[in-house]
C-alpha cells in the first residue's frame, strides 16, 4: 500500500503539566497521512493526556500541535470537523437504539438526513447488524458496542480518527475483529491514531511510539523496534524499555 509522506499530525515540544506533575514531557513526533499510528505505554504513562490535547479536549501547557494542518489551540473549530474520536468508555447512549445512536452522531456533524439513512443501512449491512438495528445499546455485548462506536467515530469521514484504548476489556478474538475494522478505515484513507497497552496490538500498527513517564522512549515500525531491541515481539521491546527506565 502506498503511504503518503505528508504529515497529518505534527507535534513539537509538547508539554502538559497538571500542577507539579508533568504528564507530557517535551513530546515531538509526526504522524503521516494514512498511517496506523500506535501510541503505546503503560497505564498512567500520559497517553490519554496527549490524545486529549490532539483532539482539542485539553490545551497544552506549551509546545506546538498541528492536526490536519490546523493549530489545535487557535483553530480548534477547524480541527474538530476533521477528526473523529472514540473514548475509553466507547461513548454510545445506552438508552438509544443502534440506529438512533448513528443518527444522532451523524446529525451533530451536520450530515444531511438522507445521507445518514443510506449510510446507516450500508454500515449495518457491513457489520452484519441489520437485525439488531432497533435494539438498545445496553442490550448488546461489549465487543459489538465497540465496533459500533468505532463506526460512529468515522461516520462523518474524518481525516483522522483518535481511538483511546478502544479494545479494553474484550477477548483477543473480538480484538482481532475490531482491528479488521481499523484496517478497513485505514485502507479508505483515514489516519488512525490509537492508544493501547496491549502489546500484541502494537504489531498491527504501521508505526508505534512507546511512552514512559510522560516521555517518548522509542518510535519506529514494529519490525525495526524488534530488531533494535533484539526482541522477538513487541511485548519484549516494551519490557526492555520499561526496565531500562528503572535502572
Amino acid at each position: 500500500m502506498l503511504k503518503q509522506t505528508e504529515n497529518i499530525i505534527e507535534v513539537s515540544n509538547l508539554v502538559k503539566k497538571f500542577g507539579n506533575f508533568t504528564a507530557n514531557d517535551d513530546l515531538t513526533f509526526d504522524v503521516k497521512q494514512g498511517e496506523i499510528f500506535g501510541f503505546l505505554g503503560a497505564n498512567g504513562a500520559g497517553k490519554t493526556t496527549t490524545l486529549k490535547i490532539l483532539s482539542g479536549l485539553s490545551y497544552p501547557t506549551s509546545g506546538k500541535v498541528k492536526v490536519a494542518g490546523f493549530d489545535v489551540y487557535r483553530e480548534r473549530e477547524k480541527v474538530k470537523k476533521n477528526i473523529g474520536y472514540m473514548s475509553q468508555k466507547f461513548s454510545l447512549y445506552d438508552d438509544l437504539t443502534v440506529k438512533e445512536n448513528i443518527r444522532f452522531y451523524g446529525g451533530i456533524y451536520g450530515l444531511p438526513g438522507k445521507y445518514i439513512k443510506e449510510k446507516t443501512d450500508e454500515l449495518l449491512r457491513r457489520l452484519k447488524m441489520e437485525n439488531i438495528k432497533d435494539s438498545l445499546i445496553k442490550s448488546l455485548p461489549l465487543g459489538w458496542k465497540q465496533k459500533i462506536a468505532f463506526s460512529v467515530a468515522i461516520f462523518h469521514n474524518p481525516g483522522i480518527v483518535f481511538l483511546d484504548e478502544p479494545t479494553g476489556g474484550v477477548d483477543p478474538i473480538t480484538r482481532r475483529d475490531f482491528w479488521e475494522l481499523i484496517y478497513e478505515a485505514s485502507y479508505s484513507g483515514i489516519t488512525v491514531f490509537v492508544t493501547t497497552h496491549y502489546m500484541d496490538e502494537a504489531e498491527y500498527c504501521d508505526r508505534v511510539s512507546i511512552m514512559d513517564q510522560g516521555r517518548i522512549e522509542a518510535m519506529d515500525t514494529p519490525a525495526l523496534l524488534k530488531k533494535q531491541y533484539n526482541a522477538e515481539n513487541m511485548d519484549e521491546v516494551f519490557i526492555r524499555i520499561a526496565r531500562k527506565q528503572q535502572l
Binding site: 482539542g56 474538530k80 461513548s91 447512549y93
Partner: peptide
C-alpha cells in the same frame, strides 16, 4: 460519566 460528553465536545457542536 458515560464518556459521551467528550465525544460531544470533540464534535463541531459548541
Amino acid at each position: 460519566e458515560m464518556g459521551t460528553m467528550e465525544v460531544l465536545l470533540v464534535s463541531p457542536l459548541r
